[in-house]
Design a protein around this nucleic acid. Sequence first.
DNA 1: TAGTCACG
DNA 2: CGCA
Length: 215
Amino acid sequence: MSGSLFAPDDGPWIERLSVGAALLHGWACADDVRLLEAVDAVAAQAPLRAMATPRGQSMSVGTTSCGDWGWVSDRHGYRYSAVDPETGHPWPVMPDPLRALAQGAAAAAGFAGFDPDACLINCYLPGARMGLHQDKDERDFSAPIVSVSLGLLAEFLLGGLRRADKSARIALLHGDVLVWGGPDRLRYHGVRPVQAGSHPLLGARRINLTFRKAR
DNA sequence: TAGTCACG
DNA sequence: CGCA
């Protein structure tokens, strides 16, 4: 005998949260080193930076992107851009391990055929957070959102379709993948301030990868 | 309103 | 902590 009677210890397992949302526990754990190497390669070409909100305030997360489109924010608003505004260069190509992970996770959650053209990379140091918001800068909402967590624990907030709706608190651990789409595609969501800590692979940080179909 | 902060 |  080995392991707990109450928690699986032999690989990923899928928790269905609602009709269009699923939490894939530990889905990315087996590939974590490869994924982190890919993220580092992207960040070497398109450095993480704190973006400004349209009201001029600095976001607490460090952000970069890869793929055909990158999500950007400045005084002009939120939008997708084909080039990194910091360098004027196109975003780095989406590394194959990242694309494959997103496609596999989407399929496992019931969204076969997901073909992301944008991967937003957010780096959370302790204290960093993400306010409640909707992902609504994409052209159409038929494709799901695939969110991969690496490193420090995050307390994720999954709200409803209206800002005032109550949010559920979901613990996101290293390797967890959260997928939401269909009737849940426009759910408000956010991340509570990340608590201090240290992860064996990533140290004192959390990396989140968010895959979208922007166009 | 992908933000912060004051107030109860 | 929730609200404005």
